[in-house]
Design a protein around this nucleic acid. Structure first.
Length: 872
RNA sequence: GGGCAGUUAGCUCAGCGGUAGAGCACUGUCCUCACACGACAGGGGUCAUAGGUUCAAAUCCUAUACUGCCCACCA
């Protein structure tokens, strides 16, 4: 016998052990079967997973399990990403805590430590995935820096190099002073911050007045190589062509014209610092201006800054401003809001810096990706992300792929005096030295769907699983990752790496704030799993994961899901308690049922179950587990447990025989098919319960995944559904009467029934009504009992004698309230039914329905009025 | 400065052309023989605002107002 409450821990342990022992999730090409392949977004090896990836993984697992149950060869590839800068930063923090740093350690020793860290971290992360119940094919575990992936990276680099798409050049790049490396454009985040706008006087050379420029970054003035004004700006007309002196260092620079300069901003004069500002760089290109570096890669001012050399950016700004002010150059300081650029890994302010870097040309690579989107080979769900994705590809800029860190794939370019640089995996010969930089971590991530299947080798896996089916990820890496995989996949294989991308939202805290360590609002999925069970956590996340929508996550939602899981447990427990010790040969089978012998409730629940299963399957096909979860939850709780199980009790506890067997068979069939349908969402408990039911359900499969897809057919019965809803309404009317008149729950009432639906109730549904409304007897109405209360429903009126219990004033008030309800309903429907436009233009079915509603409401109203008249 | 979402019950969110829904919270009754992680009954919304289309609009269109996100070279 099952315990009274579900205890997740032993069940989860048991299921995990069984899955692993059976290698249940392994996949290999199976001719004839449709592949359904998914590659996991490889988590960075920066530490343990938080709740965000848990959602991402639960979504993928639901899809994988669903498609497995549909008979497809589902393959979900696990793995991890070395995570470049992010991971190196983690290690650097550790080293700092040990009062050392990577330079003291040396490159080789540092990398060795990184390897060890990586091994431990992967263990943690993959352990978490396992614990979540992820149906990952563990034999395929991949890492972006393991041997096969390194091979893929080299091959990709070489191919792009041979095609002339890779080049090296000195460009203005986003430089993170703290991380000590260049970043690509999309690795930079922006944040609006308050700062100052400084108006600085640049004296004229000779004896003219000079100009006043406005800048937010006075400390870069030592790198100025011009002052620019708009060609149409009459205010500065006379200054153009003359020279001004940079204050404090008195270097002369020309005043030039450039259309980029805005009239309204500041003074209309712009100081041009090509080496430290993107716009200025472009102006510099247009006017062949030199680029003078005023800030070094370490964030300190260079020799060009004269007396300020060696000061940090921040200190230099304060000092320069103070000196300008003291010497009368500072004309004005305004408050000013501007968007500062921040490193997406360490959040420090980015310095645009001129440096020698490697780039991949993007325009040509983007074209096939655009085409794939436009002709539908690649689809994004929800569609709303397609436009931003498209715009990004259209305006794509070259990708800076070199990083000045140690952790990553070393750039496979070798140098030697007097030779052209060579691309090779190993030194081409003695005297060659390798480029010290490593590749952007996203370079290897971009190859993930190819690399996990052995590319560039022509493997069977690649032929079978590629292109993969769907990629599940958050919108924050749409460009960083999704777009690049599309470009690379198309460039190297001519096929999209995945046909669909499912973009989900971000898990936020319950007040809607982004989770972050610094805010202290991060949620540890393991803690929640320990507390409430894995299925509960999964269901809570999935039930809220509407496509593309962020989730405001509250632990309360996990409690709610836990309650549902417990409801599954107890309903199965109840069914098992009411089954015989020995199951019938082959289990209960619906096809053995005598359809004519079925009761209304049977026909109703089977019809409903069939429809619910169909809908849930469609929703999972459409990548919407939230909708599937919602409908399954509602059906199981509100319809199956609250009505069907209650109705079946009479037969279960009654005499043995055909009626009892039918109830048992239907309970088993409906429950076990629902458990199977829920399996993609809550794999542990559903499988455990399916197994417990298996002798009765006739399901021989050892695992829910192998039990096949849950479906019923041939049970659709609209008439039964309609009739059942009338019965339910009648029951509810009596229950309501009882509650409102404070009839003790234990007290069984006598009732008489009247109305057009009454004969049917008396003949066929008497047992239902008297059981659920707790009646001692139910008779046809003959005469109104002296002290009785009345419950009016569609086609039925119940009279309940309640001598001594009933309070007439209360009863009147109750009926008047019902009457008021009926009246307002009638007013609404009457407006419709009496509207000639409605009658002439609405579809016939609508009209008929409205008329029927009107008639029913009117009948109810009349009955209530009549009752009230008797009472007064 | 562009673009995209959202604005529905106290809270979190479904619904997206035919009489307003769920979970949680709330009120009342009940430890009724699966489940108090429960049962039954109930209260609570002029579906942001203003127009329009339609027999019919939370649902479609157009504005407006907030909120959030993405993108962008106003120093």
């Amino acid at each position: 016998m099952l315990d009274k409450a579900y205890d997740p821990k032993p069940v989860e342990e048991r299921r995990l052990a069984a899955w692993e022992a059976a290698k249940l999730f392994d996949s290999s090409p199976r001719p004839g079967a449709r592949p359904f392949a998914v590659v996991i977004p490889p988590p960075n090896v920066t530490g343990a997973l938080h709740i965000g990836p848990a959602l991402n993984d639960a979504l993928q697992d639901a899809l994988i399990r669903h498609h497995r149950m549909r008979g497809e060869e589902a393959c979900w590839v696990p793995g991890a990403d070395h995570g470049g800068i992010a991971t190196q930063n983690v290690m650097e923090k550790q080293l700092k805590a040990e009062k050392t740093d990577r330079r003291a350690l040396g490159r080789e020793a540092f990398l060795e430590r990184m390897q060890t860290w990586t091994r431990d971290c992967k263990k943690t992360i993959l352990g978490q995935l396992r614990r979540l119940g992820c149906a990952l094919d563990w034999t395929r575990e991949a890492f972006t820096m393991d041997e096969p992936r390194a091979k893929a990276v080299f091959h990709a680099f070489k191919t792009l190099w041979d095609q002339g798409l890779i080049y090296r050049g000195e460009r203005l790049v986003n430089w993170c002073v703290r991380c000590g490396t260049a970043l690509s454009d999309i690795e930079v985040e922006r944040e609006e911050r308050k700062g100052g706008l400084y108006h600085i006087h640049y004296r004229g050379e000779g004896d003219w007045d000079g100009v006043v420029v406005a800048t937010t970054r006075p400390e870069t003035m030592f790198g100025d190589t011009a002052v620019a004004v708009n060609p149409k700006d009459v205010r500065w007309e006379s200054a153009v062509g003359k020279k001004v002196l940079i204050p404090l260092i008195d270097r002369a620079i020309p005043v030039i014209e450039d259309a980029h300069v805005e009239f309204e901003f500041g003074t209309g004069a712009l100081k041009v610092t090509p080496a430290h500002d993107q716009n200025d760089w472009e102006i510099g290109q247009r006017h062949q201006l030199p680029a003078i570096k005023a800030i070094a890669p370490d964030g300190k001012l260079t020799e060009a800054a004269g007396p300020y050399a060696g000061l940090s950016r921040e200190k230099a700004r304060d000092q320069v401003v103070a000196d300008l002010e003291a010497r009368g150059f500072l004309r004005k300081k305004e408050d000013h809001k501007s968007a500062v650029q921040l490193c997406y890994r360490c959040n420090s302010v980015i310095e645009p810096l001129l440096s020698l870097q490697w780039f991949v040309k993007q325009t040509e690579l983007a074209k096939p990706a655009l085409k794939a989107l436009d002709d539908g080979r690649f689809k994004i769900y929800p569609e709303t992300w397609a436009k931003p994705y498209r715009d990004w590809l259209l305006n794509i800029k070259d990708w800076c792929i070199s990083r000045q860190i140690w952790w990553g794939h070393r750039i496979p370019v070798w140098y030697k005096e007097g030779e052209k640089p060579a691309v090779a995996e190993r030194a081409p010969g003695p005297g060659w030295t390798q480029d010290p930089d490593v590749l952007d971590t996203w370079f290897s991530s971009a190859l993930w769907p190819l690399a996990v299947f052995g590319w560039p080798e022509r493997t069977k896996d690649l032929a079978y699983y590629y292109p993969t089916s769907v990629l599940v990820t958050g919108y924050e890496i749409l460009y960083l990752w999704v777009a690049r995989m599309q470009m690379m996949g198309l460039a190297f294989e001519g096929k999209v790496p995945f046909a669909d991308a499912l973009i989900h939202g971000i898990v936020r805290d319950k007040s809607g704030k982004k989770m972050s360590k610094s805010l202290g609002n991060v949620v540890d999925p393991l803690v929640l799993m320990d507390k409430h069970g894995t299925d509960a956590l999964r269901f809570a996340l999935l039930a809220q994961a509407h496509p593309g929508k962020d989730i405001a996550f509250d632990e309360q939602s996990v409690v709610g899901a836990r309650n549902f899981v417990n409801k599954l447990w107890n309903s199965t427990r109840f069914v098992l308690m009411n089954l015989p010790e020995r199951p019938p040969e082959g289990g209960y089978r619906l096809d053995r049922l005598d359809r004519k012998g079925l009761e209304l409730a049977d026909r109703w629940i089977l019809s409903r179950a069939q429809s619910v299963l169909e809908t849930a399957a469609k929703q999972l096909d459409a990548y919407d587990p939230a909708a599937a979860g919602d409908i399954l939850y509602g059906f199981l709780w509100d319809e199956f447990c609250d009505w069907y199980v209650e109705l079946a009790k009479a037969r279960l506890q009654g005499p043995a025989g055909g009626a009892q067997e039918a109830a048992r068979a239907i309970l088993v069939a409906v429950l076990s098919s629902m458990l199977k349908a829920l399996h993609p969402l809550t794999p542990f408990i559903t499988e455990e319960l399916c197994l417990a039911l298996s002798p009765f359900s006739g399901d021989r499969a050892e695992f829910a995944l192998k039990a096949g897809y849950a479906a019923l057919s041939g049970w659709s019965d609209a008439a039964a559904e309609a009739e059942m809803s009338r019965v339910m309404a009648a029951v509810t009317a009596v229950r309501s009467l009882r509650a409102q008149l404070n009839v003790p729950p234990g007290l069984k009432i006598k009732a008489a029934v009247q109305g057009s639906f009454a004969p049917k109730i008396l003949a066929e549904h008497r047992a239902y009504v008297s059981a659920l409304a707790r009646m001692e007897s139910l008779e046809p109405f003959s005469a109104r009992p002296p002290q009785s209360a009345t419950a009016v429903s569609d086609g039925v009126t119940f009279y309940v004698p309640l001598a001594g219990v009933i309070d007439f004033a209360q009863e009147r008030a109750r009926l008047e309230k019902d009457l008021a309800k009926a009246e307002t309903e009638i007013v609404k429907i009457e407006a419709k039914v009496k509207n000639p436009d409605f009658l002439s233009r609405a579809p016939q079915a609508q009209i008929e329905e409205a008329r029927a509603q009107h008639a029913a409401a009117a009948a109810r109203r009349d009955k209530l009025k009549e009752t009230l008249a008797v009472l007064s």
